[in-house]
Amino acid sequence: MKSPPLSSPLGSYSDRDEFQAGRTLVWVLGPPERRDELVAIANMQFSEIWACSEKATATAVELSRSELPKFWRAHDDAGTSSRQLKVWGILIDAAAGSTEYDVRENLDFNPELHCPSLPLLPSKRSYRVVRTPDGVYAARAVGTSNR
C-alpha cells in the first residue's frame, strides 16, 4: 500500500501534530517553532516509515509469541496467526530520526465470527516497537497480560 502524505493535521498539541494516514494515526513530535520543518522531514521519510510497519508488526508478534504461546499456537494451527496484530499508530521523532509503532489487536479480524473456539488476545494488550535511526527494532509490551 502506498503511503499517504501527512497533510491537514487532525490536531496540534504543545509537543506534536496528529495526522491520519489511512486508518493509522500518525504523530510528529516537536516544539511548535520547529513543527513545519519536522513535519516536512517526516513527510520525506514517510514512505520508508510506512513500509517498515510490517517489520514493526513482526517484531511485536515475536515478543507476543514468547509471552502468549498458547494463544499463538492455537492461531498457528487455525491458520489465523498472520491476522492478529496491526499497527494502529506511528509516532515520528523526526529530529532524532526514530519512529515508534503502536501495535495492537487487529479489529479487522474477528475470531468470534471466523473461529469461535479460538482464544482472544488479552484485553488492553499492545506493543510499542521502536525503530532507531540505524534500523534496529526493539519491542516492549504495554498493558495487561492474561496468559
Rank of each mutant, 00 (worst) to 15 (best):
G79H: 03
L121K: 08
R131A: 03
R125F: 11
V39L: 05
R23W: 06
V87D: 00
T57E: 12
L10D: 05
V26H: 05
L29K: 12
P122C: 02
E48N: 13
E54N: 08
Y101T: 01
L38C: 09
W88M: 06
R131K: 11
K70R: 14
D77Q: 14
S53Y: 08
T144L: 14
D76M: 14
E37K: 09
E105S: 10
C52D: 14
L113H: 11
R35F: 03
W27I: 01
E54G: 06
M44W: 14
R35Q: 04
S117L: 12
Y13I: 03
A60Q: 00
A95Q: 08
Y127K: 02
I49E: 00
T80N: 05
K124E: 12
L10C: 04
E33I: 10
K86P: 00
R73T: 13
A58P: 01
S82T: 09
L91K: 06
P32F: 09
G143R: 07
P31K: 15
P9D: 03
T59K: 03
A74D: 09
P4K: 11
G11D: 09
Y101Q: 00
V103F: 02
R35A: 03
H114G: 05
E33S: 13
W88I: 05
A95S: 06
V39G: 04
L25N: 06
A74K: 05
G143V: 02
L38R: 07
Y13A: 12
S14C: 07
P32E: 14
K86F: 10
T24R: 11
T80Q: 05
D15L: 15
A42Q: 03
